[in-house]
Computed example of a mutant assay.
Amino acid sequence: MYNYPLNFVFKIATISNDFSATDASGNILFYVREKMFKFRDHVKVYTNSNKNQLLYDIESNKIIDFQQTFTITNHQKQVVGKVRKKTFSSFIKATYQLQDAQGNHIYTIKERSAMVRFIDSIFGEIPIIGMLSGYVFNPKYVVTDLKGVELVEMVKKPSFWGRKFEVQKLSNTFFNDEQVVLSLMLMVIQQRDRG
């Protein structure tokens, strides 16, 4: 469905958490914006930065960040799928379960290395030097199916502001690109400040 690799590049000059998603040819696929000052996490996905055509809504079922489930709906208000953050697993490695519209677990997103997470958290606390952690410790996340086949990998690219991510397809196995990419876009907003 998509021309990989995909690139997620965050805007720097805004107070909101928003980024553009482009394909390998540089075509804009989505413009993603986290709604600010909301009690529940809410992400909107548009066709471009003009925000004149809404494609998807991704909204949390809870106010607090504990075992949240996000529902992804398209512009016709149909449920595309769900993303469940595994809070306890995420203390060690960021972990999300991707579910179909009925709530059946179909894919998993997991951080590759707990060590990178641990070292980054220590390095980031060092005054002045910690600001450079975005160039040194860059986490990777992998999407697998229920058989453990690796489908897609997302890598945080070295940058001062932590603003660039690349999504690479790893397998020719059929998978639901739409749900996987939308789930990665949600996850990248939540995990951006790491690494």
Rank of each mutant, 00 (worst) to 15 (best):
M1N: 09
Y2T: 06
Y2I: 06
Y2V: 05
Y4W: 10
P5R: 09
F8S: 08
I15Q: 11
S20V: 02
A21Q: 09
T22S: 14
D23T: 03
G26C: 11
I28W: 12
L29F: 11
M36G: 01
F37C: 06
F37H: 08
R40S: 03
D41I: 03
K44R: 13
Y46M: 02
N48H: 13
K51H: 10
K51G: 07
K51F: 07
Q53N: 12
Q53M: 08
D57P: 00
E59F: 02
F66T: 09
Q68A: 09
Q68F: 04
T69A: 09
T73D: 08
Q76H: 14
Q78V: 03
V79N: 10
R84G: 05
S89D: 08
S90G: 04
S90R: 02
F91P: 07
F91W: 14
Y96S: 03
L98E: 02
Q99N: 08
D100Q: 04
Q102T: 14
I106H: 07
I106T: 06
E111F: 01
E111V: 05
E111Q: 15
R112G: 01
A114D: 08
M115W: 13
R117K: 15
S121G: 04
I122Y: 13
L132V: 11
S133V: 10
N138Q: 11
P139M: 07
Y141V: 04
D145L: 14
K147S: 10
E150Y: 13
V152Q: 00
E153V: 08
V155Q: 08
K156D: 02
K157D: 04
P158T: 06
F160Q: 05
E166Y: 05
V167H: 00
V167G: 04
V167D: 07
K169P: 01
N172Q: 11
F174A: 15
F175Q: 01
V180M: 03
M185F: 07
D193S: 14
R194Y: 15
R194M: 15
